[in-house]
Design a protein around this nucleic acid. Structure first.
Lengths: 207, 207
DNA sequence: GTCTATAGCTGGATAGAC
DNA sequence: GTCTATCCAGCTATAGAC
């Protein structure tokens, strides 16, 4: 089967447009027309390149899930000590989310509607999520025993770390109101947040 | 204009069904047919009672936004000291969210798609959100000056509190996988979380 | 490879019988 | 007040010209 050669430029434009529209609106509210307009082409061409809305979405979603979980596995699996890992996770998560503020609400919204799908995507993406916690737990318990940190449930600690890094981006519109600021100001607050959250966690763990 | 008497039973059933479907799927993905089936009636009757999908949604959404912000204002406005307020906020938020786990993802998803709307609803609901932060800030700064707690940016502290209370419910499907548990187990973890998070925060604030 | 035109379906809303 | 039947807009997807 010979495949016709495609204009890479168009394909790329479509993917970018699809990403924009899907991440902002979610699957159900996104319209093929929106994507076409964003890409500067017409609807028919979308189908020519990607056949169906679902197929397009799966491509984007898969990529975004990887991004959402990216790095976390490597950091937890690395040889760093606990404090270094906490620093690295916060730094990594917030940096990614400043660049892609719509990422968590998009992924979590779709995951909530179809928990099944996430598992498939996560497995394709590599590491099984429950392994993350196991590795993390061992190290935390070890540090507790050595009295490097005070006693704490490792899963609760991991939840705390992820919560403080990710939630503000999900609540962004609310926070912009509360903080009386705009996108630029929000970004400044999030940058400052890296240091603030790290300190907060380390303080909470002191023996 | 005489209004015909309506069967309260049906209206209530519809509202319950609408709530279920809207909170699980969001506005765009929800179908009137889904709601009708859930309520054990047909589509036409939905329109008879609530005229349009949007009107139904607004009713539900308004109620849910109130619920989402409920209590927070009273707690922050109360005469409690900071530690008591932190304890009360965590207790209150997690208790509500155990009863309505879909609440945050629903509200935040819709708010992200239409930030305008939230402002209207929030104002109808009473207190303007930025006043919350101002009140909280005064108290935090005061406690810092008195050396009751260590120095910290009040908005970052408020974000930390809200993040740790709310985020796990948004990430519930992911957490269920990571923790290798089901709905019941998740609830147990969240109940334990009340104490864990409160301690975590108070530790982090120690001078 | 890209466009216009249109088929075909889904889902919100209304009319009208009971 | 509740149902069946139907309308109509909006959307995905395809056919076919260029």
């Amino acid at each position: 089967m010979v495949k016709e050669k495609r204009d890479n430029q168009t394909e790329k434009a479509i993917l970018e447009a699809a990403d924009k529209v899907f991440t902002r609106k979610g699957f159900a509210a996104a319209r093929m027309e929106d994507i076409a307009k964003e890409a500067g082409i017409n609807r028919a061409l979308l189908h020519y390149y990607f056949r169906s809305k679902e197929k397009m979405f799966d491509l984007i979603f898969d990529q975004r899930v990887r991004e959402f979980f990216s790095g976390l596995g490597e950091i937890i699996g690395s040889e760093k000590n606990l404090e270094e890992k906490i620093r690295a996770i916060i730094e990594h998560e917030i940096t990614i989310l400043i660049a892609h503020p719509y990422l968590p609400i998009f992924v979590l919204q779709e995951v909530n509607q179809n928990p099944q799908r996430m598992l498939e995507h996560a497995q394709k993406a590599g590491a099984h999520p429950s392994m993350l916690l196991k590795k993390f737990s061992v190290q935390v318990k070890d540090d507790i025993k050595k009295q490097i940190i005070r006693p704490i449930d490792p899963s609760q600690l991991l939840m705390n770390i992820m919560s403080m890094a990710i939630y503000p981006f999900i609540a962004k519109p609310i926070l912009k109101t509360i903080l009386e600021t705009d996108d630029t100001g929000f970004e400044v607050v999030m940058k400052r947040r890296k240091k603030e959250v790290t300190e907060f966690i380390l303080q909470a763990l002191k023996v």
